[in-house]
Design a protein around this nucleic acid. Structure first.
Lengths: 341, 341
DNA sequence: CTGAAAGCGCTTACAG
DNA sequence: CTGAAAGCGCTTACAG
């Protein structure tokens, strides 16, 4: 027996019939004699025949693969999004090919080229922190490959997106802090080129305004890479300064953790002296001490929705209008912000 | 201009030359006039030509894709393994296609079929908790597709593996507990069909024996799914029983967290009354309270080594002997087990 | 220096 | 009911 996987040709040869007939027998094509069908199916099973997806893709001009470009799969939020994408895609007979940008523009562009070279039927992307120039994305859309953005919105492109209501989530977080009695709320923000970061900042500012809390620029500190270390350092510096602080709204949970460490090290009590809320409701935010209050984002659902949108576009005869789907967040209150009334 | 990506044929037509010439011009083939080469290259760039990887795969009988079957990407340990695989594979010009089994046998078998259908050049697999029958894996090896196992070893198959020294890691953990003065050490074990679970149990037993600590079966409790909840429940039950307990060696960090919760809820002090060590050194084990001591596994390195092994096999003319690469673990002591001397 | 032909695995319109 | 042919995009041995 030859090595490697069996092909239609192998089966045809052994049965002394044509490839056409084998192909038809394998797919319940009408008008095939029951005898030949039976022998073909049996031989296929015996040799463990699997249709060659590569050949099918070439023939059908369709790979049934959707490409995903994502900053980092090690982030719990993103890994839940991926699960959602995979489940929804698999249900429709699609495979998923994932590339991580590691938050680098160049790797993002390379990943997109690789995926386009692999002729994916559609692309799901969440841009990197570094990405400012959108030419690599525009090229894809111009070439007619469907593309949907998730989580990190992109402006000025004719493409659908599924995002979370970052503005409202941030507003809810800050309103909650205010209701706990905070009047001097720091915002550890994300990089300004990410729309999600700008939206969260807007939510923060709106809440302050609505509750007539005075604000100065010093209360916003940008954390570029979103790491715990960076946030801890930023927060420590703030605590050493003369600014008054009794609350922190962190743009993500890792930054929230950094804030917790910094406040603990400074010998202040959480939430009594300083109440803290994060964003994203990281998997184990409940397990740290104190439990970190957070804005929960529906990652799995986001993945499903993004997959559904891209599949819709792939199957549409012509390009429809781009949609934007906004998912709700939910405030989860834990000990880091729960003051007694 | 036609929609979709540009092909060699499109370029040939526009330049009034043959596909052969375009193909050769694009790849610096010797014996192509500089003028034609120049015009081809320019047009390719203008139209953003990308070689069709599908067509190449079919032609070359090689996809340059390696398939990965992994229990769950949401586990931090596995996500670091994936990063290692991706980096090492990318460096050699390979792409990676990942399928999650979600710890289910059936989904694992389906994933392998899908990957084989996609004609991946090699397969990297870490079996699910459920997997006992190995027929689906044997079939792949018989068909001549290289396969390497990582983390979860499989016995009775002629395939290379890269694993961690689970026995030694467990031994180190338990020896450490003994040196902290523990004499009644519970083991929250994994399912017996996983070799890693059996090895860790052996390490536990050996350490007890070497230090002449008496042992009864009651001290081992199997946690099938490895969740925090399950371990917390198991530990709570133990604490309510009449068994004496002053130490816990958990087969993974989530189980360790469950143990911490249970012990706290029972009003005992950690590590004074009960010292706890986990396994795997989960990303944020240091952030919970108390910090969970653990056995650190080199996930990224494991991914790199697994990728290197599979690439070796893919490029080997004939099947060599299968190797087994064992990586060292490291005991990380934190507050959950650090007693004062 | 360039082109026509064959082939990778599969499907399907066209004949018979 | 079955087969020969063409074609998806690409490469390369063979001619010229």
């Amino acid at each position: 027996m030859k090595s490697g996987q069996v092909t239609i040709k192998d089966i045809a040869k052994e049965l002394n019939i044509s490839c056409s007939t084998v192909s038809r027998a394998l797919k319940d094509f009408p008008g095939i004699s029951p005898t030949t069908r039976k022998s073909v199916v049996e031989l296929a099973k015996k040799y463990n025949y699997r249709p060659n997806a590569i050949a099918l893709s070439l023939r059908n001009q369709k790979t049934n693969v959707i490409g995903v470009v994502i900053p980092e799969t090690v982030h719990f939020f993103f890994s839940t999004v991926i699960s959602g994408i995979e489940d929804a895609a698999m249900k429709e007979g699609y495979n998923v090919m994932i590339c991580q940008s590691n938050e680098k523009y160049e790797r993002e562009a390379d990943s997109i080229d690789a995926l386009m070279g692999a002729r994916v039927d559609g692309l799901l992307v969440s841009i990197s922190r570094e990405t400012a120039d959108l030419a690599h994305l525009k090229k894809v859309v111009d070439e007619g490959t469907p593309m949907v953005f998730f989580d990190r919105l992109v402006e000025g492109m004719n493409a659908s997106s599924v995002i979370v209501d970052d503005y409202q989530g941030a507003y809810d977080a800050v309103e909650h802090l205010i209701k706990q009695g905070c009047k001097h709320i720091v915002h550890l923000s994300g990089p300004d080129n990410l729309i999600i970061a700008r939206k969260r900042k807007e939510g923060y500012l709106s809440a302050l305004e609505d509750y007539q809390i005075p604000f100065t620029e010093e209360y916003i500190v940008e954390c570029r890479n979103g790491s715990e270390i960076e946030a801890e350092k930023a927060m420590s510096d703030l605590l050493k300064s003369s600014i008054k602080i009794d609350g922190v709204f962190a743009n993500n949970d890792l930054a929230g953790l950094g804030a917790i460490s910094a406040v603990k090290k400074a010998g202040k009590s959480i939430p009594k002296d300083i109440a803290i809320v994060g964003f994203s409701n990281w998997q184990f935010s409940s397990l740290i001490n104190p439990g970190l209050s957070s804005i929960s984002q529906p990652g799995y659902e986001m993945g499903c929705e993004a997959a559904k949108l891209i599949l819709e576009e792939i199957n549409a005869k012509e390009k429809g209008k781009s949609q934007i789907k906004i998912l709700d967040t939910e405030l989860i209150v834990r000990d880091s912000s729960k003051r007694l009334h």
